[in-house]
Amino acid sequence: MKKLLLLLCIIVLSSCSKTDCNEEMSKLEKLRSQGWQNCNGSKACIDKIESDYKRQVDKLDCN
Rank of each mutant, 00 (worst) to 15 (best):
G41F: 05
L8P: 01
S42C: 02
T19E: 07
C62T: 13
S33A: 09
L28T: 04
K3P: 00
Q37T: 02
L4N: 12
I11K: 09
E29I: 02
N38Q: 08
R55P: 01
L8H: 02
K30S: 07
C39H: 11
I46M: 01
Y53P: 02
L7G: 14
I10K: 10
D52M: 08
D20C: 06
V12S: 04
Q37C: 07
E50N: 14
G35W: 01
K59N: 11
S14N: 13
A44D: 05
Q34C: 10
S42E: 06
K30Y: 12
I11R: 08
K2R: 06
S15A: 12
I46D: 01
L31D: 01
Q37S: 08
D52R: 03
K18V: 05
N63K: 09
D20W: 01
L8A: 04
S15L: 00
L4A: 13
C16Q: 12
C45Q: 03
K18C: 01
Y53G: 02
M1G: 12
E23L: 08
I46V: 03
R55L: 14
I49S: 03
E50P: 00
L4I: 14
I46W: 02
I11C: 07
K2C: 04
L8T: 06
N22E: 09
Y53W: 08
N40A: 07
D61I: 00
L13D: 08
S51H: 10
T19H: 08
Y53N: 01
L4F: 15
S51G: 03
L6I: 13
I10Y: 11
K30P: 00
L6H: 15
C62G: 11
C16R: 09
V12C: 02
N22M: 05
L7D: 15
S33E: 09
N22S: 12
Q37G: 08
V57F: 12
S17C: 13
N22T: 09
K2T: 03
L6K: 13
L31K: 02
C16E: 07
K59R: 15
D52E: 11
C21N: 13
E50K: 13
G35F: 03
N40D: 09
M1K: 13
R55M: 11
D61Y: 09
L5S: 06
S33C: 05
C62A: 11
K18R: 12
I11H: 07
I10W: 08
K18L: 00
G41A: 07
E23M: 06
K48E: 03
E23I: 04
N63A: 06
M1W: 10
Q56N: 11
S15Q: 04
S15I: 03
C16I: 06
L6D: 15
C39F: 06
M25A: 01
L5K: 05
V57E: 14
E24S: 07
V12G: 01
E24C: 00
R55E: 13
C45T: 04
I46F: 00
L5Q: 09
A44P: 00
K3G: 03
S14A: 10
I11Y: 11
M25V: 00
